[in-house]
């Protein structure tokens, strides 16, 4: 069950045999995206079809724009991702990576365009989206005065997990937090806090997990936990999207790669066959295009 994505000319990621290809997706083809595709050498090969049954895309973003005040941050993002993919989202600071994740997590509303998660609209069906999305941002989004265990139990309850206490214990064991489970979150080191944040992000076993620069502050052992988590999720058909600056670590985790520059997706392709050097060339290239406008 290898998850290989095929990149179409319109910058949409999806495995080749997908009924959606013939459907509405084509209309998102724009001159600019066609240019991008040309520059990076047209279609990437699709070594194997996954034989995934037709179902909602994990993430489907169409012409998404979002500004903060007068400053446009996302300027028309198009992105489609099959379930079970592991997407590494690269891009310079201020490219809009965090904003894109916040839109998918329903923390920021789109100004225009649509974003769907598991077929659900983030603006109109926000509550349903929240149930299937996990989000780990720059902030750990935990309560500092509560213990590790209390935090996880609280969030499990908020997500309506039936056995909240049991779920909390499983997550504590899973993230290697057992020794500190009774300590207040405030007393945790940065790395342990990040583990707790990760545990909070997957408290309801989300179909789509959004991680904003998850590898920062993680030691080698914790990074291993993260990698195992992401891979297990992929095997189970669950999607993970993460932003990152680290080319090597990002490629290690990812099945597909996308680059966001100045509020647009400027590159999208499978991670297989990309090495860090090639990726850096693409990144520099995107940054250049973005600046030139």
């Amino acid at each position: 069950m290898s998850s290989i994505a095929r990149v179409e000319r319109d910058g949409v990621l999806s495995p080749s045999p997908s009924p959606l290809r013939q459907g509405g997706e084509r209309e998102h083809l724009t001159a600019e995206n066609a240019e991008d595709a040309e520059r990076r050498g047209v279609d990437h090969p699709s070594p194997s079809g996954r034989g995934v049954p037709a179902r909602a895309l994990a993430v489907e973003v169409v012409k998404l724009t979002r500004a903060f005040g007068p400053k446009p941050v996302l300027r028309g993002v198009d992105l489609a991702l099959e379930q079970g993919e592991r997407l590494a989202l690269f891009g310079a600071n201020g490219a809009g990576k965090t904003t894109l994740l916040r839109v998918l997590a329903t923390l920021a509303r789109p100004d225009a365009g649509t974003a769907r998660v598991g077929g659900l609209d983030v603006a109109r069906e926000a509550d349903a989206v929240r149930r299937i999305v996990g989000y780990v941002g720059h902030q750990p989004h935990i309560y500092e005065e509560l213990t590790v265990r209390e935090n996880l139990r609280f969030f499990a309850r908020m997500y309506g997990v039936r056995d909240a206490a049991g779920r909390a214990e499983a997550l504590i064991a899973r993230m290697g937090l057992a020794a500190r489970a009774g300590d207040r979150a405030r007393t945790l080191s940065r790395g342990l806090l990040q583990r707790l944040a990760l545990a909070r992000g997957i408290v309801q076993e989300p179909d789509v997990l959004l991680l904003d620069e998850p590898e920062t502050g993680l030691d080698a052992q914790a990074f291993g936990l993260l990698r195992d988590l992401v891979e297990e999720r992929a095997v189970a058909g669950r999607t993970t999207i993460f932003t990152t600056h680290a080319a090597e670590r990002g490629l290690e985790l990812a099945s597909v790669v996308a680059v966001l520059a100045r509020g647009r997706i400027t590159y999208a392709g499978p991670a297989a066959g990309l090495d860090a050097a090639a990726l850096r060339t693409i990144l520099d290239d995107s940054a250049g295009t973005g600046r030139g406008r």
Binding site: A56, R131, E205, A236
Partner: peptide
């Protein structure tokens, strides 16, 4: 704990968008 987790995830019918135990 790892096997625990795996069980949790594989138990679910992945073709449906519905979180486990929720």
């Amino acid at each position: 704990s790892d096997t625990n987790m795996t069980r949790m995830t594989t138990r679910v019918n992945t073709t449906e968008i519905s979180p486990p135990g929720v």
